[in-house]
Design a protein around this nucleic acid. Structure first.
Lengths: 226, 226
DNA sequence: GCAGACAGCCTGTCTGATAGGTTAAATGTA
DNA sequence: TACATTTAACCTATCAGACAGGCTGTCTGC
């Protein structure tokens, strides 16, 4: 008694097209045969083929352009993805915070080691802007976010950057109400200055310590607010 | 003279279905109207609708079951994804290594703090197995990988786990030739023991130091082999 | 009471027809 | 000859109809 896994045609076709791309050593931007040709090649109907294409388009393997044809997307790109079940908002945010500690911690270390004069100037501009907006009593969440983003960029590790980017929807939660309130920004502001100083002094350890102080503030905030 | 962005029907439909799920407050496992009903609802052809479904299936919004219907997938799940261009293999691996340092570093810290007696026993079993295989001269890459995975698990941070999982394809590169050679395993083996001891002693700082020594070995290996 | 036939609903796949986007060659005009 | 326009060939986009086959509850004969 065996449960036979019925394989759908569009799945097969989707696989076959990927094989075809590999075997033909097609590079990014290369054109695949037209839909009609592909249906003949694989001996399937148009609808199955189009469903397969739509699937491959969703996972960014190909790009289908009206009137032009079917093209291969960047091929030597590494894609990562994952999913996490969210049950408890508070616990979830604490988890996000630990991931921030991990990723931003490494980023700030690398930034302190690698920052170039030009990048330092940019970061300094960011800090100046921060101070200016703070003194004017304006909304600082945006410039705060920009500051962190800038550090990630300076670390110049595309994977790190991609991962931070991918959870940026979550990190933004730290910047808006009820979490990202005036009080929290007041509390964390000084650490942005000390972080900057540590980076400017090329002191990774100090930078990391200051970042962790910053994150401790956020952690306190999560625990008290939620 | 404006370039009008022609919107494709299947994209609209895909959006409409997502709206429908939101507005109807459908939960995971809930059934959507049948294909025929949906075509009538949106006034589109069957093929467009099916292409939209295939797209939504690819990004894991719905699940289409033959003979049964269309169902909503887990809805309060957070999905993250990103992509990185790989140009230079060596530089890329060094980037991966830094990300490992970040994520596994945080993981081992958390593990050292949070590990339960039962988990400690499991990890001990892993170490014992490692020793046994090493003494028998057997292939240790698998048990080595299992050891690291176990630590991530103990950290009990689903986001961290998901991120490590998503780059596991890459980390595996460290475990196979030419990088994961006999010499490297010999060099890193002692650190697995010291990491275990540090975790067992609930000493996060020591654990992190030992992990970094381990990673230094791997880094050396990357720099010399490639 | 139960097994098997059956009907109704649903997805899977194929096909023919029509619309419309893209490009380059052919054509007409100054 | 130089340039704008038309046309044809090639593609994708979408619709509608038809048929195959999976799933489930009901109905029927034993």
């Amino acid at each position: 008694m065996k449960k036979i896994q019925k394989v759908h045609v569009h799945e097969l076709v989707s696989q076959e097209i990927q094989n075809y791309i590999q075997e033909s050593k097609l590079k990014a931007g290369d054109k695949l045969p037209s839909v009609d040709e592909l249906t003949r090649m694989f001996g399937v109907g148009r609808s199955s083929l189009r469903e397969a294409l739509r699937y491959l388009e969703a996972i960014e393997i190909v790009r289908v352009e009206n009137g032009k044809g079917i093209f291969v997307r960047d091929v030597d790109i590494f894609r990562f993805s994952g999913k996490i079940k969210v049950e408890n908002e508070k616990r979830f945010l604490l988890c996000v915070l630990d991931v921030r500690r991990a990723l931003e911690g490494k980023a700030i270390e690398l930034a302190a080691k690698r920052i170039t004069p030009a990048q330092l100037e940019e970061l300094a501009a960011c800090v100046t802007e921060y101070r200016r907006m703070k003194e004017s009593g304006l909304e600082t969440s945006e410039v705060d976010f920009a500051f962190h983003r800038q550090i990630i960029k300076v670390a110049s590790n595309p994977i790190l950057e991609g991962m931070m980017e991918s959870i940026s929807v979550l990190t933004k939660k730290f910047f808006h109400e009820p979490l990202g309130n005036k009080h929290l920004f007041d509390a964390t502001y000084p650490f942005h200055l000390t972080m900057f100083d540590a980076i400017a002094a090329n002191d990774p350890d100090k930078a990391l310590v200051e970042l962790n102080k910053h994150m401790d503030c956020v952690e306190e905030s999560i625990k008290s607010v939620l």
